[in-house]
């Protein structure tokens, strides 16, 4: 079962690579009309469809991998850093696909799918240890705590991709207009900024829930809800960064470039708290995420 899961993940990574290449082609391909092309958008539109198809195929395979693990190991979907990365990549890809189907912004795929791949790939190569969960952690809330944590991070990751797109588009709009520039292909700044705001708000809500449910689990398992261990502190700092961003948006009218950069900082913190601390087990989380 573990082998099957690993094989599925490998195939999924291949599909993600194809999707990333297709989306990047969609980004750099000549704008229809600026050169010879076949009717109805030609290669550029086809690349976008190919990207979406590749992403969807990868998600199905990846879903099998995650599902197989759940069957094998129970409902806590990420008991080590490898499974965690895998789960994060899957949730990120799925959220982006849902967003793309709703809003129709395949151009963002060029910014998001490479990130999905970058997160999924380490999950393929990091050696795994199948250490079982400590019995103390068999609490009902734990699976929800884990999914909320990773879904929140997935949304922050997408917000990061959107923020990168914003920074590129802003550089285009700040500079002199160039023939066949990227600007004509990318969405408007206002749209990208609005998307960032929504993603961050949802991610923040999930992060808050993660922290609360985490302390409930800790309270049940060890009797203390909060113990100032490094991961908890970093989670709190991340929470403050995103909370501050939302606050600054509402109160001070912060937006655009600053919001995009802060989003990236926040996501970097979240990743450090997840990957960094999982690799050097110094706390109770580390004890489980070996």
């Amino acid at each position: 079962m573990a082998l099957l899961s690993h094989a599925c993940l490998g195939l999924a990574a291949l599909a993600y690579s194809a999707a990333a290449v297709a989306y990047l082609w969609h980004l750099v391909a000549e704008v229809p009309g600026a050169g010879p092309r076949s009717p109805r958008g030609g290669g550029r539109a086809a690349a976008a469809r190919l990207g979406t198809a590749g992403l969807a195929a990868g998600l199905v395979l990846h879903g099998l991998a995650v599902g197989a693990l759940a069957v094998l190991r129970g409902p806590v979907l990420a008991t080590n850093v490898r499974e965690g990365l895998s789960l994060l990549a899957w949730l990120m890809g799925a959220s982006f696909l849902a967003m793309d189907l709703r809003l129709g912004l395949p151009i963002l795929g060029a910014f998001v799918t490479p990130l999905v791949l970058a997160i999924a790939f380490p999950a393929l190569v990091i050696p795994t240890s199948d250490a079982p969960l400590p019995p103390a952690l068999h609490a009902g809330l734990l699976p929800i705590h884990v999914v909320a944590a990773f879904l929140g991070n997935a949304l922050f990751a997408i917000a990061c991709g959107v923020g990168a797109c914003y920074l590129v588009q802003e550089r285009e709009m700040k500079g002199h207009a160039r023939v066949a520039g990227l600007w004509s292909k990318l969405p408007s700044l206002e749209l990208l900024d609005g998307l960032n705001r929504r993603l961050v708000v949802w991610g923040f809500a999930l992060l808050s829930f993660t922290i609360v449910s985490g302390s409930l689990v800790a309270h049940g398992a060890w009797g203390s809800a909060w113990s100032w261990e490094p991961r908890e502190v970093l989670a709190l700092v991340t929470w403050l960064v995103f909370g501050g961003l939302i606050q600054a948006r509402t109160l001070a009218g912060w937006r655009g470039r600053r919001a995009a950069l802060l989003t990236m900082l926040g996501f970097a913190l979240a990743m450090v708290s997840f990957v960094g601390l999982s690799l050097c087990p110094v706390d109770r989380h580390g004890g489980t995420f070996r």
């Binding site: 285009e172 709009m173 600007w183 004509s184 990318l186 700044l189 206002e190 749209l191």
Partner: peptide, 18 residues
């Protein structure tokens, strides 16, 4: 494809405002 200056200006504006 826009032609006139004002068209071009509108096209650029639409990359700032949704």
């Amino acid at each position: 494809a826009a032609v006139s200056m004002s068209f071009a200006a509108v096209e650029l504006a639409r990359k700032i405002f949704a």
